[in-house]
Design a protein around this nucleic acid. Sequence first.
DNA 1: AAGTCCAACAACCGCCCACAT
DNA 2: AATGTGGGCGGTTGTTGGACT
Length: 285
Amino acid sequence: MTDIYEQSDLSSGSHQQQQSDEDIMDVRKGPWTVEEDTKLMEYVTLHGEGRWNSVARCSGLKRTGKSCRLRWLNYLRPDVRRGNITLQEQLLILELHSRWGNRWSKIAQHLPGRTDNEIKNYWRTRVQKQAKQLKCDVNSKQFRDAMRYVWMPRLMERIQASSSKSSPGQSAVEASTNPARMKEPGSSQMDPNFMPELSGTSSESLDTPISSQSDLTVEYGRNPQQGIDYGDNLRSGSGWLSPEDLVGNWSVDGFGFPAAAEEVMSGDDWLGEWNVENIWLQLCE
DNA sequence: AAGTCCAACAACCGCCCACAT
DNA sequence: AATGTGGGCGGTTGTTGGACT
């Protein structure tokens, strides 16, 4: 890869811009070098955040203010948290996205250390991929329901399993269905006031990174009425559908998922007695 | 070993809004 | 009130590295 110094887009047209040659010629694009990172870090440490255009000018970086800001927020900031998205974070992202849609920065506010860019990338690479595989729109009701009744419960199960391994007391799912038990001090990094039902107890095991194989691909179609206590999470008044709603809307005849699901689940990853026929029979009983 | 494909991530772009002048 | 500027946001593209053929 080569470092790119390129003319700004403004200079590519036939009109001569009134910018100085310096502005036009010296804007750097592309990946940041270690030297640039160091310069930016030192400057911000010394002078603080904000006034990014000034930062770009005064620090000697040949970058736009926007570029400096982005690099700082997404990478250099000391509290930025890198590494795999944990199960809890994944669950939270799904839940918050169901509430707010693509409000990445708003979602990121509730995942300490995570950036909107990171969450957005997660959504695009993991979640949208599943929608594509299932041949449905990521914003469709079908896919949202699949998330609510398959993916998220599966995540809760895994969180519960992780939690019970390390602390036999309260599980994340128990906690999630009983807000009154969420007042333990020093529980989750997540804002307990914001979404108590998703803030479990603190546990190393809850930081288990997600696998690249998504739960939706593997577990899609699990009967939502088996194996897990949904508790208040199935409350219909807050955007959740009741199991009855689910069954009513998801008739095998009237819904396009089974065929797509069968395709997705036909791989080696699919385990257990759950085949597509069973799943949809259970759903429709 | 070389080539191809693809997932994941970093970075850029354009639009918009808030605020200062 | 109009205008300019800084900064935030969401969408998109480019790059990289690993898996696969």
